[in-house]
Amino acid sequence: MEIITSLEQLHKFSAPCVVALGTFDGLHRGHLDVIETAREKAHECNSQLAVFTFSNHPFEWIRPGMVPPALITGAQKQELLQQLGVDVLVDIPFNQQVADLSPQEFLQRLQQLDYSCLVVGANFTYGCRGQGTVYTLAASAKAMGFELIVRELVSEGA
């Protein structure tokens, strides 16, 4: 598994891919559903599986008093993702540079990956102050020509 640790390194991975986007702070069933859906789509498209996440919880930067306890370590997350068949892990720190990106700027940066499809959970937000939602992402998908798969949230009893 190739690991990318900064936005500036995104261009280093140039193979066609399907990207699972999310914080993936614990790799619970909902996270696994997003990643497994992306893996199935990548297989269907004969593409690589990429996971884009953060090496720290975004709340560490934007709401320091509300950071949830870590469920797994970064090393455990990397090992689990490798076991899930992830080809490239984009595991960047959430910092001021990332926090300040508008939704459009975030997608422009992400375009350095050669993706045909993004997979997210229904509660996914992106860009400065979470201004980007699955609805704005759907509009961008249509305008930019990529497929978007939005997975419903997994309930505890499911």
Rank of each mutant, 00 (worst) to 15 (best):
I3M: 10
I3D: 06
I4D: 01
S6L: 03
L7R: 11
L7P: 02
Q9F: 07
L10M: 04
L10N: 02
L10P: 00
K12D: 00
F13T: 01
F13G: 02
S14Q: 13
S14L: 01
S14Y: 09
S14R: 13
V18D: 03
V18L: 04
V18N: 04
V19K: 08
V19G: 06
V19L: 06
V19I: 12
A20F: 09
A20N: 09
L21T: 08
L21Q: 08
L21D: 04
G22W: 06
T23Y: 06
T23P: 11
T23Q: 06
F24K: 13
F24L: 11
F24Q: 08
D25E: 11
D25I: 05
D25P: 12
D25A: 08
G26A: 13
G26P: 10
L27V: 07
L27I: 05
H28P: 01
H28F: 03
H28M: 07
H28D: 02
R29D: 08
R29L: 10
R29C: 05
R29E: 06
R29G: 01
H31M: 01
L32R: 12
L32P: 00
L32V: 12
D33F: 00
V34I: 15
I35D: 08
E36A: 08
E36R: 14
E36T: 14
T37M: 09
R39H: 15
E40Q: 15
K41W: 13
K41Y: 13
K41D: 10
K41I: 15
A42D: 10
A42Y: 10
A42F: 12
A42M: 11
H43C: 10
E44W: 15
E44L: 15
E44S: 14
C45Q: 15
C45V: 06
C45Y: 15
C45D: 14
N46Y: 12
N46T: 08
N46S: 12
S47N: 15
S47D: 14
Q48V: 07
L49G: 06
L49V: 10
A50E: 03
A50Y: 07
A50F: 10
F52Y: 11
F52M: 06
T53G: 05
F54L: 03
F54G: 01
S55W: 02
N56E: 03
N56Y: 09
P58G: 00
P58H: 03
F59C: 12
F59S: 13
F59N: 14
F59D: 05
E60N: 05
E60A: 06
E60M: 08
E60S: 08
E60D: 02
W61P: 00
W61K: 11
I62P: 02
R63N: 12
P64W: 12
G65H: 11
G65D: 12
G65S: 13
G65W: 00
M66S: 15
M66W: 11
M66D: 14
V67W: 04
V67T: 01
P68G: 04
P68W: 03
P69Y: 03
A70H: 09
A70C: 02
A70E: 12
A70T: 05
A70S: 11
L71Q: 09
L71F: 04
L71G: 05
A75W: 02
A75K: 15
Q76M: 10
Q78P: 00
Q78W: 00
Q78S: 09
E79Q: 08
E79S: 07
L80S: 01
L80C: 00
L80Q: 09
L80R: 10
L80K: 11
